[in-house]
Nucleic acid binder design. Structure first.
Length: 433
RNA sequence: GUGGUUGUAGCUCAAUUGGUUAGAGCGCCGGACUGUGGCUCCGGAGGUUGCGGGUUCAAUCCCCGUCAGCCACCCCA
């Protein structure tokens, strides 16, 4: 008998599930502010939904198997292919732009590390049928507002914003040939994680992006902020034109008052091959955790998956790293009481009255608990206290003789006798008070 | 998948160079307090020292394997 969940999988005890619920509620409420509608798809998909796009090597990272109908299947590692299929199937009847979000549980067969499990939940927001920069800005603003709703500010989280079209033009301008572009992307992507020796080593041998050099790549990777980038783009009108979309995206965010969260930074490339334009990631400001959120524009994917030409952009935000950051920042809401009233009784003869009254309260939507095994009153109140409950009601022979019960406010310690038949009204009145 | 590192009670951590019965705080349970919670005091339960093997008179400690966590790769949700 296994005593632990599988590696990379989580048990959600009530306190853990409370945090998860808090995260999901916040996600849903902010997505709703932007007019996004929730959808879902199957957690199990045909394997080739993923291999067609990413190649066979992705299989090593998937939970895949052959089902009893001899189908090659996989637990979904991401939502975008499912979304692309769903949208493509009904592209003709859906009003554009489509604003959809989902909170899928995703799976990945990889060695786990902190912030990276084999299973997680991810908020996915996608905007389909809009090619303009305002669409990108809308998504980035949504991501930022989600984090703001969790109590995080620009000192806590940073959006790093790039555009592959701009990066591509800059690389081209420095002499990178089309054949060396993906290698150059790869190096830009990891350049700030490389040690100096590794950079020197790269520089010492000719690479496929010649005549551009490693120091060209280093220069580009050091561009920080829109103003800096804009001055780099001023070298040619073609370069300048390539930055138009990113400029409008940035300026839109600025007009929303969100520019203080955003750093233009071309080292954000993102591994997924299907991104075609603006890409962004969100990190904790101290950069001690993995990316909290990532996304971008993927204008060709729906065509590739479903033969429908629709521009699209989206992002994903996982619950694991976000949860760690919230814990670090003390933004985990305290657990509230699970019940409103604890009913205690003195003798067995009092019990039927407790059952009657408790049920009346429950019918009135009051959360009630009582001892299921007769115990000393002190113990019953001790249990009530550990439940963090507001009111205790004591039913005993003395009170019953007068047709009353005792109601005690466990916060203040004050108590009084009230008529038995007024319990529900009294509780409801005091709960609001 | 590769390399490194860690593993003692539910949690956080102790335990002389390998040496009797592996301890403490918090938490949990019980009592003081048989019609009143929190505070205090007292008591109790809880460990195959991750697991398996080896060295030794003797292993929590040294060695090997394995599992799990963490870190760096690979890869990226």
């Amino acid at each position: 008998m296994q005593t632990q969940a599988l590696p990379g999988f989580r048990d959600f005890y009530p306190a853990d599930l409370a945090l998860r619920t808090h995260i999901f509620q916040t996600w849903r409420s902010v997505a709703a502010r932007y007019g996004f509608e929730e959808y879902d798809g199957p957690p199990l998909e045909p394997l080739d939904l993923y291999t067609a796009k990413s190649g066979d090597e992705i299989v090593g990272q998937l939970y895949n198997f052959t089902d009893k109908g001899d189908r090659q299947v996989a637990l979904r590692p991401e939502m975008t292919p499912t979304l692309a299929r769903m949208v493509a199937a009904q592209a003709g009847k859906l009003r554009k732009p489509i604003r959809w979000f989902s909170i899928p549980q995703l799976f990945r067969y990889e060695r786990q590390q902190r912030g990276r499990l084999r299973e997680h939940f991810q908020l996915n927001c996608d905007l389909i049928g809009e090619a303009g920069p305002l669409g990108d800005a809308e998504l980035i603003a949504l991501a930022i507002d989600v984090l703001r709703a969790f109590g995080l500010g620009p000192g806590d989280v940073r959006v790093r914003l790039s555009d592959r079209r701009v990066l591509s033009k800059l690389l081209q301008h420095r002499g990178v040939p089309p054949s060396g572009m993906s290698r150059a992307y790869e190096i830009i992507d990891k350049i700030e994680r490389l040690r100096k020796e590794q950079i020197d080593e790269l520089s010492s041998r000719p690479d496929v992006f010649a005549p551009a050099t490693v120091s060209d790549l280093v220069d580009i990777s050091r561009i920080r902020g829109w103003d800096h980038l804009e001055s780099e783009l001023a070298h040619s009108s073609e370069l300048s034109k390539s930055g138009g979309h990113l400029k409008e995206t940035y300026e839109s965010l600025s007009a929303m008052g969100l520019a203080e969260f955003v750093d233009v930074d071309l080292t954000i490339v993102r591994g997924l091959a299907y991104y075609t334009g603006v890409v962004f990631e969100v990190f904790d400001a101290r950069r001690t955790l993995r990316a909290i959120c990532g996304g971008g524009r993927y204008d060709d994917l729906l065509d590739a998956v479903g033969g429908v030409q629709l521009p699209a952009a989206g992002f994903g935000m996982g619950d694991v790293v976000l949860g760690e950051l919230l814990r670090e920042k003390g933004q985990i809401p305290p657990g509230g009481a699970s019940i409103d009233v604890f009913m205690a009784y003195i003798t067995r003869e009092d019990l039927p009255h407790v059952l009657t009254l408790a049920h009346q309260l429950r019918d009135a939507a009051v959360r009630v608990e009582y001892a299921l095994t007769p115990q000393a009153v002190g113990k019953q109140l001790k249990l009530a206290d550990s439940r963090n409950v507001r009111f205790a009601v004591v039913v005993g022979p003395d009170e019953r003789a007068r047709d009353e019960i005792l109601i005690k406010d466990l916060r203040s310690g004050s108590q009084e006798s009230i008529p038995m038949n007024s319990l529900a009204n009294t509780i409801k009145a005091r709960m609001n008070g």
